[in-house]
Amino acid sequence: MVDVVSFLIAAAIVLGGALGVVGFSNPVHAALSLIASFFGVAVVFIIQEAHFLALVQVVVYAGAIVVLFLFVIMLLGVDTATDLRTEPLVGQRALGLTFGAILLTLILGGLFLSGPGDERGAVALTGQQSVVQPVDDRSQIEQLGEDLFTRNILAFQATALLLTIATVGAVVLVRNEGGEDLVIDEPGSAAD
């Protein structure tokens, strides 16, 4: 009972936040409702007893990523309300609606094909049997860590490589080679 009520509240927050992201004309308000949506997702994780995932969701998505969004919005000066009736890319909305409808059909199909003793929908959607119970009685963090460093080691290292490339790229971008001279005010460089 508690589960159902909490799920309904969380789902309302998730959907309301998501609608706000699309619907608010001010980008900062949209970013705020994105945070609300992420929080709802974290609550859904907690209901499923994935405490670690829930907190990572808050730290990484609601905490770090939206802060970066807000940085960009505030510093680039695009924080003014935009007219939502004009379409920035022609045909964008029709395409979005089409793909949204396809996704919804897939998820609903999966849902109706699943149930007690029937896993066809879940298998078709995710390629895996649904895992309702924890795999064993170790703590979630232990299980996650072992999974990351054994079964998914390739994806894990690929992500690490990707982040390294991004860091190097950022450094190269700010190096300012061949551009205007940077002002040097180091001690001993004698600015005369």
């Binding site: 900062v28 705020l32 945070i35 405490h51 670690f52 829930a54 907190l55 990572v56 808050v58 730290v59 609601a62 905490g63 770090a64 802060v67 807000l70 505030m74």
Partner: peptide, 19 residues
């Protein structure tokens, strides 16, 4: 996951200041 909760809250505290 108390320690993570602490980290989450300290990263959320930024929003108050920023906004």
């Amino acid at each position: 996951v108390g320690v993570l909760f602490f980290l989450a809250m300290s990263s959320l505290g930024i929003y108050g200041i920023m906004l």
